[in-house]
């Protein structure tokens, strides 16, 4: 409509249209009530203007019926909006099972992205159309907030915690990527673009730069370099629990608690190994706090995720839903290592 003076953001994700629909409904409701109040005030002000300085109008106390009427009608409308908004909100926050992972680290003042295939980007994010994409995000310093107006998504990025945001792009193009939570001096410079591509173009782009190997491969390298491999031996006979097939499974802790081995759990295990000890193991692991960067931790997680279960073991599907895993106490014994603080997971906070 207006080339250099747009008044509406592009719609480039599956939920954008739905958010806009609710937005337009809200505009209609607001316009109606604004018009109503303005008309009432204007008509009364003109019609009942003071005609003589002596004039004393007939008084009235009010009306119970009217009070009920104009309390209940707005209440009903408000509850309709709430219901509509809440059901859409569930859709917006529940990550679909088949989502493709991309990992995000925010820092003052840049966005760093890692694709599982190994591609790394700064302030630019390439994504394909046609499939849900899950961003697993954390911050190295202060709170940031990843915001893509064209997708109508935003989520704060917190230090020491993973937050998951998802969207499914629909339209190839280049869109604004903003930091929406004020994060210090160059806050307004913490911007970039999301480049949405057709799946084929995206594949080509991925293939164009995979120099350092996949995230899992880099993670494996770190796993060896940092010496993790000396204790976490694959056959489970080491001093530490095996990590094979661990991801997404429930872990029995020494306290009797059970937690799910998700990203937050693994991260916690690396940085604060003694926070939670796996049943039947000793608290012997040293902390890696300060020795591995947020991006390296994400690579280690990608490596742990990639460790396929040994044949014969029953393991849960990949994904971090608690229910989907092994029946408690079955074979694939006490996986687990360290700790996790599932309380760090977003839905518990």
């Amino acid at each position: 409509m207006f080339e250099n003076f747009p008044l509406f953001p592009p719609q480039a994700s599956t939920i954008a249209g739905e958010v806009d629909l609710l937005f337009f409904f809200l505009i209609a409701v607001s316009a109606f009530f604004t018009a109503l109040i303005y008309l009432m005030v204007t008509i009364f002000a003109v019609r009942y203007r003071r005609r003589s300085s002596e004039e004393i109008p007939r008084q009235n106390l009010g009306s119970l019926q009217l009070e009920i009427f104009w309390s209940v009608v707005p209440l009903v409308i408000a509850m309709v909006i709430f219901g509509w908004s809440a059901s859409l909100y569930f859709k917006m926050v529940r990550v679909p099972d088949n989502a493709m992972d991309i990992y995000v680290v925010g820092r003052q003042w840049m966005w760093k992205f890692q694709h599982p295939e190994g591609n790394r980007e700064i302030n630019e994010l390439h994504v394909p159309t046609g499939r849900p994409i899950r961003l697993t995000m954390t911050s190295e310093d202060v709170i940031h907030s990843l915001y893509v107006p064209a997708f109508r998504v935003k989520l704060d990025v917190l230090p020491d915690r993973y937050q998951s945001l998802w969207f499914q792009p629909t339209k190839p193009g280049t869109y604004h990527l903003f930091c929406a939570e004020y994060c210090g001096t160059q806050h307004s410079g913490m911007v970039g673009s999301v480049i949405v591509m057709e799946p084929r173009d995206y594949e080509a782009w991925l293939a164009g730069d995979a120099s350092g190997g996949s995230m899992a491969a880099r993670g494996e390298k770190l796993f060896n370099q940092l010496g993790c491999v000396t204790c976490h031996v694959p056959d489970g006979r080491g001093r530490c629990p095996t990590l094979v097939g661990l991801f997404g499974r429930p872990v029995q802790l020494i306290t009797g608690e059970q937690v799910t081995a998700n990203e937050a759990y693994i991260r916690e295990s690396i940085l604060r190994p003694n926070a939670k000890i796996v049943s039947a193991f000793q608290p012997i692991m040293p902390t890696y706090q300060g020795q591995v960067s947020e991006e390296s931790i994400l690579q280690l997680i990608a490596y742990v995720k990639s460790l396929a279960p040994a044949p014969g073991q029953t393991v849960g599907t990949e994904g971090n839903m608690p229910g989907g895993a092994v029946s408690p106490g079955s074979t694939g014994p006490a996986p687990g290592t360290a700790p996790a603080a599932p309380s760090q997971n977003r839905s518990n906070q």
Partner: peptide, 9 residues
């Protein structure tokens, strides 16, 4: 409205 607030927050 949570779902609109996500965009305009």
């Amino acid at each position: 409205a949570t779902s609109v607030d996500v965009h305009v927050h």
